[in-house]
Design a protein around this nucleic acid. Structure first.
Lengths: 229, 229
DNA sequence: TTGACGGAGTGTCCACCCAACACTATGCGG
DNA sequence: CCGCATAGTGTTGGGTGGACACTCCGTCAA
């Protein structure tokens, strides 16, 4: 089977930068390449776009196939099209940006046929293609976006403590925040539902659990409310 | 001449949303299509990406060819890849966002071989393909971006009055601003060079001219300064 | 020449938001 | 029951943003 065109066409791929958060660090999902080029090198999950699927569908499909992941948040990041970015020829890649709750996915990624693993974004091996550029772009986007959109919650379990949330922001923004000011601000937004539950299995006073109220956020957003910091 | 591949490939195009500003309104550049599909319909300037040029180079080339325009600012906007967006088959388009000083380009665009014209963004004819979506995305980006990056200056002549600048923001943001507060804020940023010149040919007191200091902005930006509103 | 018109240019006050800052409360474990 | 680790809680001062109105100046026409 082959396909013939009157003019030459680039290949089109999608690549995904999937972030997760655990107790130590902000993590990114990588796949070890099984074939040339860059065989054995770590790379972002991704692959060729099929003719009958949208770009976002392609990204979701590749994540499902390569790592068994269904992200909570998936959005287009940037399209990388430098002529020499792939040694096989002209390949243009539409990069996507995804956030997952690591607790849901830690096992999955490691047990798939292909070798997949979470790496700290501060300690990433040498990557295939221009994937280091893509990762850097995504990391920058995360740092910028987290401040004015409530996407941090996509990285936490559904029920979380305010301290967990604060740690999340501290890790992503790479600076320390004041506990009292942080709580004041978050609670004042009225986006967190205070649960009648506390965290379990801790050897000290247990903290109260909260849940992010997506519905209320959508309402407030329509009314012109702006999440910030 | 023909090109054969083992797997099918989408076509890849770039489309450009070029904004300009004149005394009345925010304008966008459109080209009248001379061929099917959508012959005679207005569309964004754009075309196919060549195998040896980057995406941005393709966007610049198309703008030059179709409208004789070299934009002051050109950045990638979003990639549109819905399977049915082009009746000719699968065509994925990388959209670019551009700003020009209309005074430089008003004539050029109208005198080129192809029919090109500036339309108010509030009164655009029915567009070809999904170009209305692309335009809407670009317009939204402009509104968002203008508030926290000093890109408005790319729409004005090199020397401008504070009132012109204020009108620009009012048109883009679609709300009125307070004159004193606006001046206070802009001048406090220390990014405008006060010239020893005033505007000419006005039938009232002439306003002082200013110039945007790109060099100083780059310095301040490195030092962590954030332009805002 | 002078008066009217049109837009240029200028300062203050108040309300709110943000950053800095330290102690008490509670539950667990030894 | 005592120590430890983390939870949880208010006040203050400085700075910023928004509201607000009058005088200045150059042109043009009577």
């Amino acid at each position: 089977m082959s396909y013939t065109y009157e003019y030459p066409r680039p290949s089109l791929t999608v690549d995904c930068v999937v972030f997760g958060l655990d107790d130590e660090d902000l993590k990114v999902l990588l796949i070890k390449r099984g074939v040339e080029p860059f065989q054995g090198r770590w790379a972002l999950p991704g692959g060729f776009v099929r003719m009958d699927e949208s770009l976002e569908d392609a990204a979701r499909r590749e994540l499902q196939e390569e790592a068994g992941i269904r992200p909570n948040l998936l959005e287009q990041l940037y399209t990388f099209g430098a002529p020499e970015r792939d040694p096989r020829g002209r390949v243009v890649s539409v990069a996507y940006f995804a956030l997952v709750k690591l607790s849901d996915h830690r096992v999955h990624a490691a047990t798939d046929a292909r070798e997949a693993a979470w790496f700290s974004v501060y300690d990433v091996p040498k990557l295939a293609f221009d994937h280091a550029d893509i990762l850097a772009t995504a990391h920058q986007r995360l740092k910028g976006k987290v401040r004015y959109q409530p996407i941090g919650f996509e990285l936490l379990p559904p029920k979380f403590t305010l301290t967990q949330l604060q740690r999340l922001y501290e890790k992503i923004l790479e600076r320390e925040l004041d506990k009292r000011n942080f709580r004041k601000k978050l609670l004042a937004m009225d986006l967190l539902e205070e649960l009648d539950e506390v965290e379990q299995d801790v050897s000290h006073r247990a903290a109260r659990l909260y849940r992010f109220d997506h519905k209320k956020y959508k309402q407030l957003e329509k009314a012109g409310f702006n999440f910030e910091l």
